[in-house]
C-alpha cells in the first residue's frame, strides 16, 4: 500500500481573516506570554546527563585490545592511529590505538568495529583542551575517562518527552529510564 498523491489548495484569505487572523495570532502569543514553554539548558550551571548510548568521547581498555587495527582502518576522518608499544620487557612491541580529537567526528565506527569491545563511548560531549596539541591523545591519556567540565559545579538534568510541552527538563535523579 504505497502512498498516494492528494491535491490540495491553499486556503484563500477572506475578509474576515483580517480580524480572526490577527486575533488568533495575538491570542497564541498571549498564551505563551502567560505560560511560556521553555526547556533551555542553563549550561554550565546545568548539564545533560547523557544516555549510555550516546556517542561521546572514546576511551580505550588496553587489557582488552588485541591490536587488530580495525578501528584505525575504519576511521573515516583518520583520527585514530596505531602506535607500537612494548608492554612487557622482552616481548615484541604491540600496536595500540590513539586518537586525535582534532579530527574525530564521533561517528562511533571504531567502537562498533572493535571485536573485543576494547573501545567504548563515554556519555560526555564537552571536554576542554587548552591547545590543539593536547587534543592529540597519547596512549596513557586515551585510557583515562574524561570528565565534562560542568560536572564539578553543574546540576545534572535530563530531558524527558512530554506530549504537552515537547521536552521537559527534570533533575537527572528523577528522570528514570530514557
Amino acid at each position: 500500500m504505497p502512498g498516494k498523491v492528494v491535491e490540495k489548495q491553499t486556503p484563500k484569505p477572506r475578509f474576515i481573516n483580517a480580524i480572526t487572523g490577527n486575533l488568533g495570532a495575538i491570542l497564541v502569543g498571549l498564551k505563551y506570554f502567560a505560560n511560556p514553554n521553555r526547556f533551555t539548558l542553563k549550561y554550565p550551571y546545568e548539564y545533560i546527563e547523557l544516555r549510555n548510548t550516546y556517542r561521546g568521547f572514546i576511551v580505550l581498555d588496553m587489557k582488552k585490545c588485541i591490536g587488530c587495527m580495525s578501528c584505525a582502518r575504519i576511521c573515516p576522518a583518520s583520527a585514530m592511529k596505531m602506535v607500537k608499544v612494548t608492554v612487557q620487557e622482552g616481548k615484541k612491541p604491540k600496536p595500540y590505538p590513539v586518537i586525535n580529537y582534532n579530527r574525530c567526528i564521533f561517528c562511533g565506527m571504531c567502537v562498533d568495529v572493535c571485536p573485543t569491545e576494547a573501545l567504548a563511548h563515554l556519555p560526555v560531549h564537552d571536554v576542554v583542551y587548552l591547545s590543539m596539541d593536547e587534543m592529540d591523545l597519547d596512549l596513557e591519556r586515551f585510557q583515562q575517562k574524561v570528565e565534562s567540565p560542568s560536572v564539578k559545579e553543574g546540576v545534572p538534568v535530563k530531558y524527558v518527552f512530554d506530549p504537552e510541552k515537547g521536552l521537559v527538563k527534570v533533575p537527572a535523579s528523577e528522570g528514570g529510564e530514557s
Binding site: G29, Y32, F33, P36, N37, R38, F39, T40, K42
Partner: peptide
C-alpha cells in the same frame, strides 16, 4: 517578552 513567547529565556 519575545523570549517568553519564543521558548527562550
Amino acid at each position: 517578552t519575545a523570549a517568553r513567547v519564543q521558548m527562550r529565556i
